[in-house]
Amino acid sequence: MKVSDVSVRILICEDNPLIALDLQAIVESEGHEVVGVCESAAAARERLSEPFDFALLDVDLVDGTSFELAQTLQARGVPYVFVTAMRPKDIPEDLRDARVVAKPYREDAILATLPQH
């Protein structure tokens, strides 16, 4: 596996610890930096003041959905992708242009969503 030439700073929002660790291992194996792993939308909101380039968002978190967080990222121009078992038609209309990686996911599907700087 080729390690990326450019490191992307990534925020992971995932309430399942095993999936969060897997996502972290996938992106770090390519030389990217995980700036935080959050299991709740509230914890993710606290990290919004920190610099990051991209977010991997599970839709269903321990305290609700990540939709409001996605809307904030969208307004700030920060790219993100939903990593979810939710059907795309259940995503709010204003977020339906977002990329979605369906669970269970493949490593290459996750890596293909990362921004190319």
Results as ranks from 00 to 15, higher is better:
residue 2 K to A: 08
residue 4 S to M: 06
residue 4 S to G: 06
residue 7 S to P: 10
residue 7 S to F: 08
residue 10 I to T: 05
residue 12 I to E: 01
residue 12 I to P: 02
residue 13 C to M: 15
residue 14 E to H: 08
residue 14 E to Q: 15
residue 15 D to Y: 03
residue 15 D to C: 15
residue 16 N to H: 06
residue 16 N to K: 08
residue 20 A to R: 08
residue 24 Q to W: 09
residue 24 Q to L: 10
residue 25 A to F: 04
residue 25 A to Q: 06
residue 27 V to K: 00
residue 28 E to H: 02
residue 29 S to M: 07
residue 30 E to M: 03
residue 31 G to H: 14
residue 31 G to I: 12
residue 32 H to I: 01
residue 35 V to H: 10
residue 35 V to K: 14
residue 36 G to E: 14
residue 37 V to L: 15
residue 37 V to H: 09
residue 38 C to P: 02
residue 41 A to W: 03
residue 44 A to R: 01
residue 44 A to F: 00
residue 45 R to Q: 11
residue 46 E to I: 08
residue 47 R to I: 03
residue 49 S to V: 07
residue 51 P to W: 08
residue 59 V to I: 15
residue 60 D to V: 05
residue 62 V to C: 05
residue 63 D to H: 07
residue 65 T to E: 01
residue 65 T to Q: 04
residue 66 S to Y: 02
residue 67 F to R: 01
residue 68 E to N: 11
residue 77 G to P: 02
residue 77 G to M: 03
residue 78 V to L: 11
residue 82 F to R: 03
residue 82 F to D: 00
residue 83 V to T: 11
residue 83 V to D: 02
residue 86 M to R: 15
residue 86 M to G: 00
residue 88 P to G: 10
residue 90 D to P: 01
residue 93 E to F: 09
residue 99 R to W: 04
residue 103 K to D: 06
residue 108 D to M: 13
residue 110 I to G: 02
residue 111 L to G: 03
residue 112 A to K: 12
residue 112 A to Y: 14
residue 114 L to N: 01
residue 116 Q to H: 06
residue 116 Q to R: 13
residue 116 Q to K: 11
